[in-house]
């Protein structure tokens, strides 16, 4: 018997199955590539042959695509990423006081006290310092993103790079490259710039207390971990399932919900074979002109999103 958690993020779509002791038995890390439905379907295709529909006791979704994913799979719980990450971290280690989470499009800090979230913050309008930015720089330097951390660790010193803005950071890096610094020094400098930006921007005014969890996709980058430890002077812990924490949290929350409700809404793995189509149109009901997206499964409309008034979204009782 398992609990399913799905985290549809901007860069990756993560699926986990937890057993009844909340241990991870299956984890899938897929690239979303702007197609959340296809990513979830791909994940389900992989799970379908190994697990039966009735083996899933509860399903939860999180991430920026949580609504669409919930409609798709029939989720029991739809939770924001902050709560999901906090729940997963606390389940891993009850002593966590600070969570640094850096994902594809956003970065967050979550402050915990006595097992509850007491404060949090997210990056505002700039995506400098997030996974997408690192991805882009790796691509530009022609270094696989997986090796980014090793390059940083190999460098003995680092160059200073402006971290406040992604565009400035990039031009600064180009300048430093032109001056002849090696890649390692530049990448290490970039890690420091991102950490500086995170601490001054996202974590501004927040008390960062031990024990610190570093999670989200960017935690795979050893250079970032080292830069955080150097700046904070405290050891930073990367949990085993650092890139799955959102999905794990969603699964745990769904488990709790179903234990109260008694039954799951999970639609089963068969959606892997369904044909999904999304059509968008501009609603002409009022002057708002909302861009409404309409998701169809085998030509049946299963969900509508994007309307401000609820005219389309509420028609379908989920």
């Amino acid at each position: 018997m398992y609990y399913l958690g799905v985290d549809v993020g901007s860069v990756s779509t993560d699926l986990v199955l937890l057993n009844q002791n909340k241990q991870v038995v299956e984890k899938l890390y897929l690239r979303t590539k702007g197609k959340p439905i296809a990513a979830v379907q791909e994940g389900f295709r992989m799970l379908k042959n190994k697990y039966g529909n009735s083996e899933i006791l509860a399903a939860g979704t999180t991430g920026s695509g949580r609504q669409i994913a919930s409609t798709l799979i029939g989720a029991d719980a739809v939770k924001n990423e902050i709560t999901a990450h906090a729940v997963a971290a606390l389940d891993t280690d009850g002593d966590v006081r600070t969570i640094i989470e850096i994902g594809g499009q956003d970065s967050k800090i979550i402050v915990l006290k006595n097992g509850i979230v007491t404060d949090f913050a997210m990056n505002t309008v700039c995506a400098a310092g997030t996974g997408s930015f690192l991805d882009r720089q790796a691509e530009r330097l022609e270094i696989p993103i997986e090796a980014f951390g090793d390059y940083a660790l190999k460098a003995n010193s680092y160059v200073r790079i402006a971290g406040r803005c992604a565009v400035f950071a990039e031009s600064d890096m180009i300048h430093k490259q032109q001056l002849g610094y090696n890649e390692g020094e530049i990448i290490r400098g970039l890690c420091h710039a991102l950490v500086r930006n995170y601490l001054n921007n996202v974590a501004k005014g927040k008390e960062i207390k031990d024990k610190i969890f570093f999670q989200g996709g960017v935690a795979a980058n050893k250079g970032m971990k080292a830069a955080f430890e150097e700046s904070l002077g405290i050891q930073v812990v990367i949990p085993e399932h650092y890139n799955m924490m959102g999905a794990i949290g969603a699964a745990i929350i769904a488990k709790e919900k179903v234990e109260k409700a008694g039954k799951t809404n999970f639609k089963g793995f068969d959606l892997a074979d369904s044909v999904f189509q999304s059509k968008s149109f501009e609603c002409e009901g009022c002057s708002n002109g909302c861009e409404v997206v309409n998701i169809q499964e085998n030509e049946n409309v299963i969900g509508c999103f994007g309307d401000r008034c609820g005219k389309w979204g509420s028609k379908l009782a989920m």
Binding site: S64, K79, N80, I82, T83, V117, F120
Partner: peptide, 20 residues
């Protein structure tokens, strides 16, 4: 006009207030 970012923040904040 994407509301996901705003929704996430509000929901997380309300979760936090409830638990506090």
């Amino acid at each position: 006009t994407g509301e996901a970012g705003l929704d996430t923040r509000i929901e997380a904040f309300v979760d936090m207030l409830e638990r506090r």
